[in-house]
Simulated assay, not measured.
Amino acid sequence: MASGKILVVDDEYAIRDMLRMALEIADFDCIETDNISDAHSLVVDERPDLVLLDWMLPGGSGIELLRRLKRSEATRAIPVIMLTAKSAEDNVIQGLEVGADDYLTKPFAPRELVARIKALLRRSQGMEDNQRLAFEELLLDADGRRVYLADKPISMGPTEYNLLYFFMTHPERAYSRSQLLDHVWGANVYVEERTVDVHIRRLRKALQSHGKDYSGLIQTVRGTGYRFSVRGLEDH
């Protein structure tokens, strides 16, 4: 049984061929395309478990497709890893802020890519906890992997969900960015620490929904990192 279905979107045949071989060796099903239009159709029709999306594509940027996927309720939760030859920090941050869950800068080792994919799928497909966590009007349903604010569902990506789950199960303690990476991303996966800041911003934005502002629950601890604190709402 395959480990999951991965959509590869890259206009270079040699890159797609390398990715397909690496994914098939790792027991993933692989579908592929070289353009944005076909990529969106494949996401809708095939419902891949994860998308590997090149930054530069014919007819537009992979960022355009990423924005389209994240705007739709039907495709928003599908994890996306950006593949980019651009190493400038603003390009990486732009992809994360639009909604990418991770990124890799070319050239990269296939083994690292597979490790990133497996870690992201673990984050997106499940914490094996049967419980509901609540604070005032914020509710996290671990069974359904849903979050509610004022009895209405709020949308967030798998990484933001797992950050919130970790925070709600470990309240009132400050964690460094490195510790959050180990607990949420996985100790064997290399992700730069600035990635944590981007996902914290996205989590805080998600917690501002339905006329409520619970973003203050996620506190910045100067010189350390972040903390989930019920006292955050009192000061917010």
Rank of each mutant, 00 (worst) to 15 (best):
L83K: 06
D90L: 02
L96D: 02
T159E: 10
R16S: 11
V147L: 14
A74P: 06
D182M: 14
A174P: 14
K152W: 07
E136G: 00
P158H: 05
I31V: 15
D29Y: 09
E12A: 14
N91R: 01
L113Q: 12
M156K: 08
V43I: 15
D213T: 11
D102M: 01
D129A: 05
D101P: 03
D90N: 08
I36H: 10
E112D: 04
D27P: 09
R222T: 05
V8G: 04
A187K: 13
I78G: 11
Y175Q: 05
D29L: 04
Q131S: 09
S229Y: 09
Y190L: 11
T84V: 06
V9T: 08
V80P: 05
I154C: 04
L203H: 04
Q219M: 13
V230I: 12
L19W: 02
R47V: 06
G144K: 06
V184Y: 09
L163N: 06
Q208S: 09
R201T: 09
Y190M: 07
E136K: 14
W55L: 05
L7R: 00
S215L: 13
A109Q: 08
A206K: 13
R227L: 11
R123I: 15
A14L: 09
T75I: 04
V44K: 15
G211N: 04
E97Q: 12
L149W: 14
V198I: 11
M168Y: 04
F166G: 10
